[in-house]
Amino acid sequence: MAKQNKIELSPKQCEELLKVLKSRFEKNKSRHKDLEWNKIQTKLETNPHKLWSLNEMETTGGEPDVVDYDIKTNEFIFYDCSPESPKDRRSLCYDREALESRKEHKPKNNAIDMATYMEIELLTEEQYRELQKLGNFDMKTSSWIKTPSDIRKLGGALFADFRYNTIFIYHNGAESYYAARGFRGSLRV
């Protein structure tokens, strides 16, 4: 994605964010058993625009953490790892088309536009299932997930949650929104 917002963190903001990310990394070693923080930090420091995206994930309640490393692309992969769907990313319909289709009681925003602004991607169904292997997430909330275009063309969108010790993938009209439904993102650095 092209950088649209041109916002950069101050050196102090970068330092504070790196401390938060390092602390979370150290507290949750089971999410990234074979990864070393120093390599991740070096990669982050050389990609300040990615730090901005991680800060957006953090300030909206996502609690981003490293969950994988892609050896082919030499990228660390971060997911929102907050126990529930990120607090400041809830009450959103799926995308702009859905938002514009609502005649009344429109939500403040939509998941796709917000993710695009943050320069992150909605988790896919596969990624959501991988996240759930790292803990129990969305036990009280739900999260929009990337919806295949054939479903979206028919007006639907997918969301997921974890109930009864099971991952559930559901559908809803893309224009729907609920106080307990947000979205989780991923970021490659």
Rank of each mutant, 00 (worst) to 15 (best):
S23M: 11
T42E: 14
D65I: 08
R129K: 15
Q41C: 08
I169S: 07
K29M: 09
P83Y: 12
L187D: 07
Y177F: 15
K108P: 10
Y69R: 03
D150C: 00
I7H: 06
F78R: 03
D95W: 06
N28L: 09
K12P: 01
A115W: 09
V189T: 13
E84K: 05
D68E: 10
D161I: 09
P148R: 05
P48H: 10
A98Y: 04
F76S: 00
N28G: 08
F183R: 00
M1W: 04
Q4H: 11
R129E: 02
G155H: 02
E175K: 00
L122Q: 00
F76Q: 06
I112V: 14
K106G: 06
R89C: 11
K39N: 15
H171Q: 12
S142V: 01
K50W: 00
G61D: 06
K3M: 11
N165Y: 12
K12T: 15
T166F: 13
N110Q: 03
D34M: 06
R184C: 03
E58Q: 14
I40N: 07
T124F: 08
P11T: 05
V67F: 04
T73K: 12
K103I: 15
K19Y: 11
L51T: 02
P148Q: 02
Q4T: 13
M1S: 11
E56H: 09
K43G: 01
I77Q: 03
D68F: 11
N5F: 13
R102E: 00
K29A: 13
D161K: 10
E16S: 13
R152N: 07
H171V: 09
H49C: 04
Q4R: 12
V20L: 15
T124K: 02
K72Y: 14
Y117V: 12
G61E: 05
E36W: 04
K39Q: 14
C14V: 13
I151E: 05
F78Y: 12
L158H: 01
E119F: 00
K12R: 13
H171T: 10
D68Q: 02
L187S: 06
L21F: 10
Q127G: 02
F183Y: 13
S85N: 04
F76C: 07
D68Y: 08
Y178M: 10
R90D: 08
G155C: 06
E97D: 08
R102Q: 08
S101I: 07
N38D: 15
D80A: 05
D95Q: 07
H105Y: 12
P148I: 11
C93W: 03
R152V: 10
D80V: 11
W52V: 01
I169R: 03
K87W: 11
K3A: 03
Y69W: 06
L18I: 15
H105L: 05
D138K: 06
